[in-house]
Every structure is written in structure tokens, then in C-alpha cells.
Nucleic acid binder design. Structure first.
Lengths: 198, 198
DNA sequence: TAACACTGAATGGTGATTCATTTATGTAAC
DNA sequence: GTTACATAAATGAATCACCATTCAGTGTTA
């Protein structure tokens, strides 16, 4: 049995357990059982419970960032780029609900607990959006009077809230495609009718 | 000493403590100390720790709903109505950071723990947004192809993410006015330049 | 046989909740 | 207005279940 395997097994198990029970309600023994290792084994790979949570972020969000950046590298139109980001984000969150919940809920708890945990993967992820917007502004495709720092939060917040609801509520579940379609419509062209907009 | 006073004192104290430490890290004794009552006294007014959290929501969000609805009743233009909602939301969240954090973080935990807690104040609050959008669609001011159920999440998610960052990060803090201005710009007219939009 | 990986029962700190007791408030009788 | 009694409100130390973490011991590999 290789160490790498066990490390990954624990991360995967922890993601699942944290998502189901939340960080504070999750017991180390739950994670151990899920990963099929002894309780003590977990402490050979992680310093403590909180350290497991941080590792979940680093690794899982890191993966998403890599994937998104790869997709974006093949596109030059900033309009399409936002669409790609939205599609990738929503697809991942819809497919991996455990991870989605951990990111949505626990990451926030964490950000509060350790405010000095800067330069984190999460910031890096959200900054992809503002980079796209800045690129679009240079190309005169996006309006110059949009502040990328606010727009990135608005865009990410929209995606995040929508995928959050997918996990918790009984509300109608639109497809990723329909949802992206709506989001892009709103963020690129706005909600006003043509008559009013022009 | 009237009972009403003590109830309110505990709610206020709990809001503060939950915001600072998070629900799970908050001790009953912390709340008791903050409210200047004995630990046991809290159990004369609430069934348990979780019950306190629910009460914080019900009462605090209920207040905001009342205020927003009152403001909206005096306006008929759906464009202005969204602006009013955004301004009120961001103003409250900026002024009452304790409440803001509790809503942003704890409400989500809670929604997860008790999925049957439907018909809650939170839903009522977010539905104000979709009601405005539907009204605007009837008046042909908002595009008919916007789905109010998605747009409300996008709009709320944007506000929520922006105010969340106000509480946690060191990022530049825009004023409520500037922020509302940007949000309204994006949601009503979109991010494309005029040339591209028309 | 040494080095290493792993195990899981035992430990110890924590903190929600309880409840015997105290304090405050009300009320009736004189 | 004061004493006595009753009821309600408040207290906070004690209880006890919980669970993160440890570590002495077992198994495995080289």
C-alpha cells in the first residue's frame, strides 16, 4: 500500500464527510471509516482535523483551476471566455456535490477563522474572472466603466448562489446549459428589453 | 426586569458571538456573558443552542424584509426597485457586520442541516427580487426571456458575495453607492460596450 | 532485526444542558 | 406600610456525553 494512495483516500473521504455533515459535525472516526483506515492513521498524514480541511481546498480547487485555465488558453474572445468559466464551474459543482458543498460552506467558515490565509487558491480562482474582464476591456468589448474587482464578485457570486441552491433546495433544477445561457445573457446584455437598452 | 428585554438581549448577544466565532465555536457561556445573564437563563428563553440560531434569523431577517417592503411600496419603476433592494441590502450588511456574517455563513450551514425548514424568511426575502423582475416583465421593461428564478439567484448572489468580502478581506472597499451603481449597470445594461450591445 | 506503516483503545479537555438553590416580584391580610 | 407567603425568574456549579488526539503495541517490509 503506497502512502500516496492513503493520502488521497483520506482527502476524498474527508471531502465526502465534510460535505455531508459539515466540518464541525464530522468526526475523525467518520473520515477514518469512510477512508477505511484507522483513526490514528489520519494523524500520520495530517496534523489535525483543520489541516485536513485546508488540504481538501488546496488540492480540489487546485485541480479546477488547472482545468479552467487549460480550457481558457484555447479561447481568445472574452465573451466566450466568461461562458467557458461559467460552464466549467457549474458543471464541476453539479457533478461533485460533495466538493461543491465543502467549497461553498466550509471555505467561508475557514476564511473567517484564518483571515491571514491569503494568497489562497480560492482568490486565484476568482481572479481568473477579473482577468477575463480586464482583457475584454482592453479589446473594447467590455465597457470601460465596469470595475473588474466588483464584477468578478458579482459573476462568481451568481454562479455560487445558483449552484448552492442546486444542492440544498427543491427548487426547479435547470440544466447547466440553460443556466449558463441565462447568466451570460444577463451579464453581457443586461435584463432590459432592447427598446429600453438602446 | 421584563422578559422581553432579556429575550432581545440574548438574541443580540448571540448574533454578535455567532458572527465572531461561528456557531460551533460559540459557547453558550460566551453568549451568556455577552448578554449579561447566567448560562442557565438562556434555557428559559430558548430550547437549545440551535434554537437560538433560528431565532436570530427569524427576527433579524424579518426586520429587513419589513423595511425593504416598505421602501418598495413607494416605488413603481422596476428598475428603481432593484436599485432600492440592492441599496438596502448592502447598507444593512455594511452597517451590521455581525448580522451579515451570521446570515452569510450560518444560514447556509443551517439550510443544510434542516432542509425541511422551508417557507423560511430567507426564501421570502430572495423572492422579493423575482417579484420585481416579474413585474418588470409584465411592463415590458425587463426582457421576457429572462427566467426570474435564475435571475433572482444571480442578483442576490452578487450582492451576497460582495458584502461577504467586505467582512473578510482586505480588498478595496467600495462605497454602497458605487457598488449599487455597478451592480445595476451590469444587471440592467450588461457589460458589453454600446457598440457590441446594440 | 531494524525501520516503517498502521492500528484502535484509552485519555483528557470541552462545553451543552440540567437542576437545586437563591433572588425578585407580587399579593393578601392585618 | 409591613409582614408573611406564593409564585416566578434567574443563577451557576455539577454533570456527563462527546470526540480529537495520543501512543503503546502489532504487523509488514527490506
Amino acid at each position: 500500500m503506497k502512502a500516496v494512495n492513503k493520502h488521497t483516500k483520506i482527502i476524498t473521504a474527508a471531502t465526502k464527510v465534510f460535505a455531508q455533515k459539515g466540518f464541525f459535525n464530522a468526526r475523525i472516526s467518520d473520515i477514518a471509516k469512510e477512508a477505511k483506515v484507522a483513526d490514528g492513521t489520519i494523524y500520520l498524514y495530517f496534523n489535525n482535523k483543520f489541516d485536513i480541511l485546508l488540504s481538501v481546498f488546496e488540492e480540489e480547487i487546485g485541480n479546477i483551476i488547472t482545468q479552467v485555465k487549460k480550457l481558457l488558453a484555447e479561447e481568445t474572445d472574452p465573451r466566450k471566455m466568461l461562458e467557458i468559466f461559467a460552464t466549467k464551474h457549474l458543471t464541476v459543482m453539479k457533478k461533485n456535490k460533495h466538493l461543491a458543498e465543502v467549497i461553498q460552506i466550509e471555505l467561508r467558515q475557514t476564511n473567517k477563522l484564518i483571515k491571514d490565509y491569503r494568497n489562497n487558491k480560492f482568490s486565484e480562482y476568482v481572479n481568473i474572472i477579473s482577468d477575463i474582464i480586464k482583457l475584454g476591456q482592453e479589446q473594447k468589448i467590455y465597457r470601460a466603466d465596469i470595475l473588474p474587482g466588483i464584477a468578478k464578485r458579482a459573476f462568481f457570486g451568481s454562479l455560487d448562489e445558483i449552484s448552492r441552491v442546486w444542492n440544498t433546495s427543491l427548487e426547479t433544477n435547470y440544466t447547466v446549459e440553460e443556466t449558463v445561457n441565462q447568466i451570460i445573457k444577463i451579464f453581457l446584455s443586461g435584463m432590459l428589453t432592447q427598446a429600453k437598452a438602446c
